[in-house]
Nucleic acid binder design. Structure first.
Lengths: 160, 160
DNA sequence: CACGGTAGTAAGGTTGCCTGACTGTCAGGG
DNA sequence: CCCTGACAGTCAGGCAACCTTACTACCGTG
């Protein structure tokens, strides 16, 4: 049975934050569904913080933490999981033996580009459904809000 | 120390889900900041699921759970917290003594309309910053995506 | 070469949910 | 009637995704 919503009173417009969350969940749901379909196993929403922020030559844990706005411990756990699934590897930095370079494996690179491709597909699909211009405006508007309203707020994780 | 992001390689465009999350967090942050400023104490993000879905005449726990997509237990805890802060009250339904009607107190109604007012302000502010039309398109696009992509997915919480 | 700073790890706590099991109440049929 | 299945809500316990505090190993500089 289909989640009866019952008769809503009040509530003329859906609050914007709720809309944003719903749309994000739709996009993320589609992304991870298709990643799983393509055989990329064990990738969870949160792992986006690694895939999104890692450099091609690899990055330090600390760097990933700074960029994602998470703590080193949080990132460390995510990296550990991705390592277990073979998407990244930790290699000791020979120039600074305190540090380890987190680097995508070949499989990791595949997953990363698959994710990018799928998200591009999602945007194209939406362009088809509601018009190319509207989706372009959507994206631009979101980017501008972030640019204008971010005095100095660290990014709140959020996966690709 | 302003969260040095370092030189990003790759990543031509910010992934859409990340943008959506960032914008939502900006809106929600502003909302709760201003609610706190206006003296509405103890309201947390998650409480939105109650304020958003409760009817003016009050609603049952089960109804709130269905509408929000959360479990009865989760909603129950949120309601308990709001009750502690005086925003809602649980009254036994005389027609069905299994049920309790969750109803906003006067203070709760104040908070609810303050939230609506503040969110409207946020949208107005963004209209000023990036053009009325763009924000209108933004909203419409989000609503359409939800409408078109939601076969039968229960709403994922998301606060007002 | 001592010492403050940085890279990463370890341990444990908090938040926001969930599942499963339970109590009390309702309503329809035997 | 009252019995039984369904429903409203609560209780207990668990898990995910974070966080803070505390530590060890290594770096570079004076």
């Amino acid at each position: 049975m289909t989640t009866r919503s019952g008769p809503r009173k009040r509530q003329p417009t859906v609050p914007l934050p709720a809309l944003l969350t719903q749309v994000r969940d739709i996009a993320m749901g589609g992304l991870h569904q298709r990643l799983a379909d393509e055989g990329f196993d064990g990738i969870r929403y949160v792992h986006g913080s690694v895939f999104r922020f890692i450099d091609d030559e690899g990055s330090r844990l600390t760097t990933l933490a700074e960029r994602s706005g998470l703590t080193k411990q949080a990132i460390s756990e995510l990296v550990g999981e991705l390592e277990d699934h073979g998407y990244v590897e930790r290699i000791v930095d020979k120039a600074d033996r305190r540090a380890k370079i987190i680097r995508l494996t070949d499989q990791g690179r595949l997953a990363q580009s698959a994710a990018a491709r799928i998200l591009a597909d999602v945007e194209r699909r939406w362009s088809r459904l509601l018009g190319k211009d509207d989706v372009a405006v959507l994206r631009r508007a979101l980017e501008q809000v972030v640019a204008l309203e971010t005095a100095d707020t660290p990014p709140t994780s959020a996966t690709p």
